[in-house]
Design a protein around this nucleic acid. Structure first.
Lengths: 229, 229
DNA sequence: AAATATTTTTAGACTTGCCTAAAAATATAT
DNA sequence: ATATATTTTTAGGCAAGTCTAAAAATATTT
């Protein structure tokens, strides 16, 4: 382990990753987070999770009772959200300033999010113009840890004749993002639902009042839109 | 250790730091680099250096003979220069884009230089406009590892009546850099040597054809200038 | 050339984070 | 309620990188 002051005075790379993973699981499920779920999320083994969870518990970052799963403390949640904030700001930088495609930013941001410097993040935020959302439409938590909830709905929830602006994605995989990119289904595009096949659920949409396209149910269930009244 | 692909497929944080430190010692001295010098440079103990040096030797990054010091191989030098390149590009980003003062960029760049992504560095380089020098006037190695040598001389080498443009510093300490900043002695300023005291070697200079100032010999020995013919 | 001092290496141990395999606890099925 | 299956934890070990203290090699003095 490096003894660089920036890597020592707070939380390690690994600790931040655990906290972030637990935070995301907590968001999804509301139930107590169990060891196996964490192991799956960060691609490690349950035994390793038990070790780390004990350590995080001693540091008051989460509450842990044997065999009963974990729950982040206020502090743990703060650290997790801060890591998410850093991740999303870096993704925005990579996309908006360095012209990385939206499916390429995640892996690099996974590294950058662990750079330790509050001043760096503040200045990056300012440099980017205090963005509210990252390139995938996910909200960027504020300095204070507040996450502005957006009222996006799934494209699959739109009825025929309704329209919305593409504002985010549910599936963040590179494969899905590349697929969207290839079909011009990027953030900001306006979609009008014209037809929903009764037979195979394919959804016919019109993009930006121009070309029409058929979207699979897999696709429409993974696109978030801001509904136009 | 994280298993993130980006941290695994090449050289570790620590390995890169050793290589960079050895490279810099090699630049300064030309003699074989001994264990204690490395230990001092990266603030560790000689015993730790011996361990790491063995490891780097096995990986063909340097040549090592017991009790005889080390010498980087071609590969080791390449990795070191690449790390220097990354460091200086990040310093430039921090200074030019995020408005960090020139004495604040080093520590953050020490972290950023270990982010693993060739594409990131290429795009950062482009975003910055392919800068030739970092905020301290040090040359930024090219993708190919070539370092353009500049012909700067010490301010202390200028004779009375000669002038030069501040182009770099020898001492990189925050204390010195802050001192320069406070006295408007930043990159690009033009200095005309007007007087050199025979008694205490204080150098009287005129800055940008305007205000005059006395500089200590400690200061003039640590400023690099591009001499104006 | 011998004695002393310095430098470098070895030996053994520590920490973080990970692993496998076995044991213990909990959950589910009969 | 007992047996089976699953999940979780323990136990013991590994790798990277660090440390201290002692041993070995090299340098310097006398």
């Amino acid at each position: 382990m490096p003894k660089n002051i920036y890597f020592c005075y707070m939380y390690s790379f690994t600790e931040e990753n655990y906290l972030k993973a637990i935070y995301k699981l907590q968001e999804q499920s509301d139930l107590a987070i169990n060891t196996n779920a964490i192991a799956a999320a960060i691609q490690t083994k349950a035994a390793s999770v038990t070790d780390m969870v004990k350590k995080l518990s001693e540091k008051k970052l989460l509450n842990y009772e044997k065999y009963k799963g974990v729950e982040l403390t206020h502090l743990g949640k703060k650290v997790a959200i801060d890591t998410v904030r850093k991740h999303r700001l870096w993704e925005t930088f990579l996309h908006n300033k360095l012209n990385f495609a939206w499916d390429e930013v995640h892996d690099i941001a996974e590294q950058l999010e662990h750079i330790q410097s509050q001043e760096l993040i503040d200045k990056l935020d300012e440099f980017l113009g205090f963005p509210s959302h990252d390139p995938h439409g996910d909200p960027i938590p504020g300095r204070n840890g507040v996450i502005q909830q957006n009222n996006f709905i799934l494209l699959s929830e739109l009825e025929i004749g309704e329209s919305g602006i593409i504002s985010g994605v549910v599936n963040h995989s590179a494969l899905f993002l590349q697929h969207l990119e290839k079909n011009e289904l990027v953030l900001g595009k306006k979609l009008l639902v014209q037809e929903i096949s009764a037979f195979d659920q394919l959804v016919k949409v019109q993009i930006d009042d121009k070309k029409q396209q058929q979207l699979s149910s897999e696709v429409v269930r993974n696109i978030l839109v801001k509904k136009l009244s």
